[in-house]
Design a protein around this nucleic acid. Structure first.
Lengths: 142, 142
DNA sequence: ATGGGTGCAAATTGTTTGCAACTTA
DNA sequence: TAAGTTGCAAACAATTTGCACCCAT
């Protein structure tokens, strides 16, 4: 399914669905969770999937633009992504001590965001909410 | 006031309130809005305020840790900050077309975030909500 | 066949660091 | 005066790019 979406997206932009782009897409959707470009590369290399670092860096923005992938957690020095298609939207609680990422979702939150957009006459597309603090394991031991 | 807070913060950590740190603090609080390290440096240089790039990069994390400044808008390749002391907390609507940043605030939103933290037994410290989309001027013309 | 795409390695860019000289508490 | 701090320039790390060859359409 995500293949179709990506193919369509590329087609509309006059871009080509190359083997490499396919492979990257597949890899991104092969597992659930966050990833970064370097990790993606390593993961693919370890499975003998031929792809260059440059192609990964060139493909990720396309995946984001197509709406299949989102950039999240931009705190670290390198970019983190997660695929969103076929996933419920969710937000993140990030532990400042151990780095744990807890996914949360609240319909009320979504509703309020819509409200905020309406009030500002703003057409919301995507959003990111990150709450940083201490997870249940770390909050005692500070 | 922010000077006192910073001084106190540094004191507790056994750090010193140097001229450079003062100057950076003053500059950060001299105007309202977002900034990045490079811009801060240029702004200071243009007013003949003596400071090195290294000091800026070394001081900003201290300002963040002290709670006087927050890191926001982590989409771009470089870090963006804004001072928060003496400011209401707010979130951001970011226009994907013209780059406009609209500040919004909703008490309901804050309340729900607290609720989310409680549900996950998480001790929230700070949070960032960014909604990306199109502002009132750009949403028509797409 | 044509225009986009790839891999590589070199280039860029934002940020960090080692070090000698200097300040602050 | 002891411990932290500065500025500089060199070092880093993540990402981007130029180019010659390659491959979807």
């Amino acid at each position: 399914m995500e293949r179709e979406i990506f193919r369509e997206f590329l087609y509309k932009k006059g871009l080509k669905l190359t083997k490499e782009r396919q492979r990257i897409l597949d890899e991104v959707f092969a597992f659930h969770g966050h990833f970064d470009p370097e990790g993606l590369l390593k993961s693919m290399r370890s499975r003998n999937i031929k792809v260059s670092k440059a192609s990964i860096y060139r493909t990720l923005p396309l995946l984001v633009e197509s709406g299949l992938v989102e950039q999240v957690e931009k705190n670290d020095k390198h970019a983190h992504y997660e695929h969103t298609f076929g996933h419920e939207h969710h937000d993140h609680l990030i532990c400042l001590k151990c780095g744990a990422v807890i996914e949360v979702f609240s319909p009320k939150l979504e509703a309020i965001q819509d409200e905020l957009c309406r009030e500002s006459n703003f057409k919301g597309r995507t959003h990111t909410l990150e709450i940083k603090g201490y997870c249940c394991n770390c909050k005692e031991t500070r």
